[in-house]
Amino acid sequence: MDLPRIFTVRESSHRIHNPFSPGKLATLGEALRLAPGTRVLDLASGSGEMLCTWSRDHRVTGTGVDISTVSTEQARARAVELGVADRVRFAHGDAAGYVADEPVDLVACLGASWIGDGLAGTVELLGRSLRDGGLMLVGEPYWRREVPDEEAARACHAHRKDDFLPLPELVERFGGLGYDVVEMVLADQDSWDRYRAAQWLNLRRWLDQNPGDELAAEVREELSTEPVRYTRYQREYLGWGVFALMRR
């Protein structure tokens, strides 16, 4: 049980596996006014940057669960580096279907709504671990502007145009699922650039060092096509943000 190798290669230098900068992540933690001792469950926690830095800065406690063995080890090392290994732990496992033994104060899934087979299922899954009055964080894409055709939608990693919603409709969708949107922090084009463009350097350096690897052809194809796809479509049309929700 693990992610395909291409994910590890693509984001080998990343501590945050979504289009948030460290500053955006810090802004989100500050905006939520987290109290010391807040219990957090982070599903699809990646390299653990949110849980580790918030434990350092706000003294939260909690657990991260991720399917990637590489990311889980990176998260554990980051907890030691920041001196918070006594307050946070990271488990290697499939976040899909994971429910906390006891309700937590804050439950999060930032950019991995596949764990619930889509937005509605992910919100339902996260809600099963959340105490009454607790906070839910969902990271989700949305359309920054109207997508001209299905080709552009597919270039933005949607199967079709209606896979993602414009921002107002996404906020409205959360209400339809029974939650108030009580905070949000949105990625901007600069933070998107830092997330996506850093992948290209990772790919190129890996390719130079591993020209004979069985993955080399796939890496070469991605490096040849993704910068154009990103600058032509994703940078203009695709937004992403983290939305803080409370159950109505």
Score class of each variant (00 low, 15 high):
33 R>I: 09
62 G>P: 01
48 G>N: 08
62 G>V: 04
47 S>V: 02
32 L>W: 00
63 T>V: 14
69 T>Y: 11
28 L>V: 09
21 S>F: 11
33 R>V: 12
77 A>T: 12
50 M>G: 10
30 E>Y: 14
84 V>W: 09
93 G>R: 06
40 V>D: 03
28 L>D: 04
79 A>I: 02
39 R>E: 15
102 E>M: 08
55 S>K: 00
79 A>S: 08
102 E>W: 10
96 A>I: 05
50 M>Y: 15
46 G>L: 07
85 A>E: 15
93 G>F: 06
60 V>F: 05
48 G>T: 07
89 R>D: 14
26 A>L: 14
66 D>E: 11
96 A>W: 07
59 R>A: 12
53 T>K: 06
84 V>H: 07
101 D>S: 12
56 R>D: 05
107 V>K: 10
78 R>E: 00
100 A>I: 06
89 R>L: 06
102 E>Y: 05
29 G>H: 05
98 Y>I: 00
40 V>R: 00
68 S>F: 04
95 A>N: 02
50 M>C: 11
42 D>Q: 10
100 A>C: 11
44 A>C: 14
21 S>P: 09
82 L>R: 05
38 T>I: 04
21 S>M: 10
43 L>Q: 05
60 V>M: 00
65 V>L: 11
48 G>W: 03
60 V>A: 02
105 D>P: 06
87 R>F: 07
23 G>C: 04
97 G>F: 07
91 A>G: 10
105 D>R: 11
71 S>A: 14
38 T>F: 01
91 A>Q: 14
26 A>Q: 15
36 P>Y: 08
103 P>Q: 03
48 G>Y: 05
28 L>C: 08
28 L>N: 10
71 S>D: 13
68 S>T: 00
36 P>H: 02
95 A>P: 09
21 S>C: 09
96 A>H: 07
96 A>E: 09
50 M>N: 12
99 V>Y: 06
39 R>T: 14
69 T>L: 12
68 S>L: 01
